[in-house]
Simulated scan of single mutants.
Amino acid sequence: MSERTYRAAIIGTGGIAHAHAQAVQGSGGRAELVAVADVDAGRAREFAAKYGVPHAYGSAEELLAAQRPDLAHLCTPPALHTPLALACLDAGVTALVEKPPTLSLAELDTLIEAEARSTAHVATVLQHRFGAGAVRLRRLAGEGRLGRALLATCDTKWYRDEAYYAVPWRGTWESEGGGPTMGHGIHQFDLLLSVLGPWREVTAVAARQARDVDTEDVSMALVTFESGAVATVVNSVLSPRQTSELRFDYEHATVEVEHLYGYTDDDWTITPAPGHDTLSELWGQDRSSASSGHSGWLAAVLDAFDQGQEPPVGTADARRTMEFIAALYASAFTGERVQAGQITADHPFALRMDGTGAPWRKSP
């Protein structure tokens, strides 16, 4: 049991905010939702009434000034993440930011600099890292039970129609920061990166195949890791049969998961190589029925708070994933291989994810 109950707030009461509210309510008293804010004050009041929250505000500034919570869940459209996270840091409030954390590497570096001056932190909500299957996989891999990682595949094949993109902030570089690479596939390839470790090189393509948007609607990448492992990454919003799949081929076993928006242990399989049958027994230990949703992620955040530590997926950790995204776009739009560390502060793809411009960019 936590030593204290942390005071939480939600800023932005759209769809994903409900998952955050439910996670707080399901925390067993470790956190309590004390306030919400939304630019639509009426929607904020409705949300507060639904979840029994005592205070609702029409702006984040009002909420932070009046309540000074321990943590603020930022559930707004992506373009607001950086200014709101900066406001939280100025107020000494830890910001828990929905993906993507910022629109660019430059914005993330701004948060890193501001965080160094604050008593608070910024952490990104990448909940699939915290499901039981992912935790087990990293543990077995770290113990050397699976042997060397050889290759992996990472597919986010979802379907989003024109009505989805009728929301004004979707499908633009200025407000969403990118297409499925930035806003959809990030969960799967962030999990891939958390398992396989630092990446070394990216070769990619991106295309606008079917949706009338400014960003890509599909991307593909070949990735080489420092360990020598290689992987493919596919991000799509054009796939009528939707799936989220990860496959890891190690020397001693293949480990796979297939789900859509969240997995349980039932979605994972392990196939041992000949002579390594005991791995099935190891994988089957400590099975969990919990989903890789916001509840497990929030529990990890609160554990860190209890121990006086930075919450998981902090700015340095999130930067590695964001650098991967920038490298994917840079490779796709320039036709070049991109190395880790190549996108420096003044690089066009550090300043904007579309960098020098998507090849299909509309003329002004």
Score class of each variant (00 low, 15 high):
residue 2 S to W: 04
residue 10 I to M: 03
residue 11 I to W: 00
residue 14 G to R: 01
residue 16 I to Q: 03
residue 20 H to D: 07
residue 35 A to H: 01
residue 47 F to Y: 06
residue 57 Y to F: 15
residue 57 Y to N: 02
residue 58 G to F: 05
residue 62 E to T: 05
residue 74 L to G: 01
residue 75 C to D: 00
residue 76 T to W: 01
residue 79 A to T: 07
residue 82 T to C: 10
residue 82 T to N: 06
residue 90 D to W: 06
residue 96 L to W: 00
residue 100 P to R: 02
residue 105 L to N: 01
residue 106 A to C: 08
residue 112 I to N: 04
residue 114 A to K: 14
residue 114 A to G: 09
residue 125 V to G: 00
residue 137 L to F: 07
residue 141 A to P: 04
residue 144 G to T: 11
residue 145 R to G: 02
residue 158 W to I: 03
residue 160 R to A: 08
residue 160 R to H: 11
residue 169 W to Y: 15
residue 179 G to E: 03
residue 185 G to P: 02
residue 189 F to L: 08
residue 194 S to K: 09
residue 203 T to E: 14
residue 213 V to W: 00
residue 217 D to M: 05
residue 225 F to W: 06
residue 229 A to C: 13
residue 232 T to I: 09
residue 235 N to D: 14
residue 239 S to L: 07
residue 251 E to K: 09
residue 252 H to V: 05
residue 256 E to H: 10
residue 256 E to S: 15
residue 258 E to L: 13
residue 264 T to I: 08
residue 265 D to E: 14
residue 266 D to Y: 07
residue 267 D to I: 05
residue 270 I to L: 14
residue 271 T to E: 15
residue 273 A to H: 09
residue 277 D to V: 10
residue 283 W to C: 03
residue 288 S to D: 15
residue 289 S to H: 12
residue 289 S to F: 12
residue 289 S to V: 14
residue 289 S to M: 11
residue 290 A to N: 10
residue 291 S to W: 10
residue 299 A to D: 15
residue 306 D to C: 11
residue 309 Q to S: 15
residue 310 E to N: 11
residue 310 E to Y: 06
residue 312 P to S: 12
residue 317 D to A: 13
residue 319 R to T: 08
residue 320 R to A: 10
residue 321 T to P: 00
residue 326 A to I: 06
residue 330 A to T: 04
residue 333 F to T: 02
residue 335 G to A: 10
residue 340 A to G: 08
residue 351 L to D: 06
residue 356 T to W: 02
residue 357 G to K: 10
residue 359 P to W: 07
residue 361 R to I: 09
residue 362 K to Q: 14
